[in-house]
Simulated assay, not measured.
Amino acid sequence: MQEKKSLDLQLIELKEFIKKNPYWIYEYINSEVLKSVGTLNPNYYVKLIEDIFVKQTNIKTAEQNINPNILPYFIFTQLFEKGKMDYTSLRAETIDFTTINKESKVYYNYAKFSLKEGTFYIELMQTKIGGMPIDEDIVKFTKKIPVKSSGLEEFIKKNKDIASNDIFKKIKEDIDNIL
């Protein structure tokens, strides 16, 4: 019972942090986490926060201590409750993977996101089909992004005085409405 309470407390603290810093989390994701991969659409970012922290009942934090600095990476591991996103869903309205697609030059069915030992992994995966003599889907390309242990907090301190713009205001308003 104690573990469940600490998980609930952790989620409450994360929601409060998101409410205070919605725009900077979004900017950090695009400028640091996805810098050499692609871009996250601001409307889709709000949808992810709602799906993960409002609608989803089973957030997989048990294996990891999710603090504010891990949050920008963690969000991706919760996509569709499995940390996966189909290739056909990766587009400008969601997550634009144009940059990683140019780098990888591979055919893939979905992207898989995971956090392991201080590294954020984006794996472009091909689905195992029919009579293939393999047990699992095939990793076609892997992008390893080091997790910065205090990266988000430093980013917020450095950029807190940036004048708000229309995207800032819209994200703030939308997150306030859902959390």
Rank of each mutant, 00 (worst) to 15 (best):
residue 84 K to R: 11
residue 95 I to A: 02
residue 179 L to C: 11
residue 63 E to R: 14
residue 32 E to H: 05
residue 75 I to G: 04
residue 138 I to T: 13
residue 158 K to A: 11
residue 176 D to C: 04
residue 169 K to M: 09
residue 53 F to P: 04
residue 76 F to W: 07
residue 119 T to E: 09
residue 63 E to T: 10
residue 172 K to Q: 12
residue 11 L to D: 06
residue 79 L to C: 03
residue 156 I to Y: 04
residue 63 E to F: 11
residue 72 P to S: 02
residue 73 Y to S: 08
residue 78 Q to N: 06
residue 174 D to P: 01
residue 41 N to H: 14
residue 24 W to K: 05
residue 102 K to Y: 05
residue 45 Y to W: 09
residue 59 I to G: 00
residue 2 Q to D: 14
residue 136 E to N: 13
residue 10 Q to K: 12
residue 162 I to T: 15
residue 52 I to W: 04
residue 104 S to A: 15
residue 100 I to L: 07
residue 105 K to F: 12
residue 7 L to Y: 08
residue 90 L to D: 02
residue 102 K to I: 04
residue 55 K to V: 07
residue 148 K to C: 06
residue 176 D to L: 06
residue 51 D to S: 13
residue 127 T to C: 08
residue 87 Y to R: 11
residue 149 S to W: 05
residue 144 K to E: 15
residue 91 R to K: 12
residue 48 L to E: 01
residue 47 K to Q: 03
residue 153 E to Y: 02
residue 32 E to T: 06
residue 140 K to M: 14
residue 124 L to A: 10
residue 79 L to N: 00
residue 141 F to D: 01
residue 98 T to D: 01
residue 18 I to A: 02
residue 121 Y to T: 06
residue 118 G to M: 03
residue 48 L to M: 15
residue 63 E to A: 13
residue 177 N to G: 09
residue 62 A to E: 14
residue 148 K to M: 11
residue 26 Y to S: 03
